[in-house]
Design a protein around this nucleic acid. Structure first.
Lengths: 190, 190
DNA sequence: GTCTATATACGGATAGAC
DNA sequence: GTCTATCCGTATATAGAC
């Protein structure tokens, strides 16, 4: 495949990624994606043979993005507590998007679970990337016995915050809850 | 409308309610509902003129159910802390359903937000029923200044727990988090 | 009230011209 | 590689017989 083809493919994935996030997977049609990229539906099928194939590409794309984010944090420093704070701060950084569209991972996982989609497990893996990474950090902080529980607790807290922030479009609530999360982190790290 | 008609209408609402919960609103067709109630699609439109009308009936139905639950708790006793514990215990009572289908309120709110549905605000009102009720309880416990914040905090925690439990189908996680919620309640009530 | 038959629209997917 | 044209299935909704 040529360079131009690769670039277009990447543009399609990026457009689909954004639309799936904003509108949901099922509610996004080929027409929507094709319009966004300004190509015809026919051309579309040259790059992806089915809608599931796009979903797969989108999930893979998000997975790579997450890995890169975590790598970047690790390269900036090796302070586990600071790493966890970086994680919490995503809520603040993404507050506008969260208020409008919720959590990009939670959204796709919930939807795929409801429609009982085959790619459900792949979507859950996006969660697992964060959980595994956070688990390591909590272990480094001395919580070797319940590190994973702490990681999942933090994930669930974030998820709930994103969900409620999205339903009520209430960014003040998000800010307050971020403060609580940092207090919680201080409490368990001393 | 006769008695039989009313009963059938209620059966349709009950079936739609369950299917919307398990499969989502958009992913549930008239055929699905009609099959569940064992009537024809044509008959269907005698009772409901559109799909939105069923959605409205379902949301109203859930609203009445929630009000009744809260009323029942209030009639059993007037201990505010015990009331909040009742709320937390729904997670345990519904753990099987939550593992399979998530939270019935969070599910519909998220979905309607994503498809930008007109009835979004009505769905959010289901949340508000709990928030208002919990706010009163926290006020009675002496947290007059931040009662609503505490109520929304608890709601978000429950929501996150339901969401993660659903994604991973992990009831052990739910049980552990319920324990944490009760610890949190003990901490703020003393 | 309940049914069958049908109108209409849309989404995913394919065929074939260029 | 990109396009237009088209097939096919399904979903909402309506018309009209019984």
């Amino acid at each position: 495949m040529g360079l131009k083809g690769e670039l277009l493919r990447q543009r399609i994935v990026a457009a689909a990624d954004q639309l799936f996030y904003q509108q949901g997977f099922e509610n996004t049609s080929f027409n929507d994606i094709a319009s966004a990229v300004e190509i015809s539906r026919g051309n579309f099928y040259y790059h992806f043979k089915s809608k599931d194939e796009i979903l797969q590409a989108v999930i893979h794309n998000r997975s790579e993005e997450i890995k890169q984010i975590l790598d970047n944090w690790d390269q900036q420093h090796n302070d586990p507590k600071l790493g966890i704070i970086h994680y919490i701060d995503i809520l603040t950084t993404m507050q506008e998007n969260i208020a409008n569209s919720g959590c990009p991972i939670g959204g796709i996982c919930s939807e795929l679970a409801k429609i009982d989609h085959a790619m459900q497990d792949d979507a859950n893996q996006l969660y697992t990337l964060f959980i595994d990474w956070l688990t390591i950090k909590f272990k480094q902080l001395g919580h070797s016995k319940n590190a994973r529980q702490l990681a999942m607790h933090l994930l669930a807290r974030s998820q709930g915050i994103a969900s409620v922030t999205n339903s009520f479009g209430d960014k003040a609530f998000l800010k307050y809850e971020v403060k609580l999360l940092k207090q919680w982190l201080d409490d368990i790290t001393g």
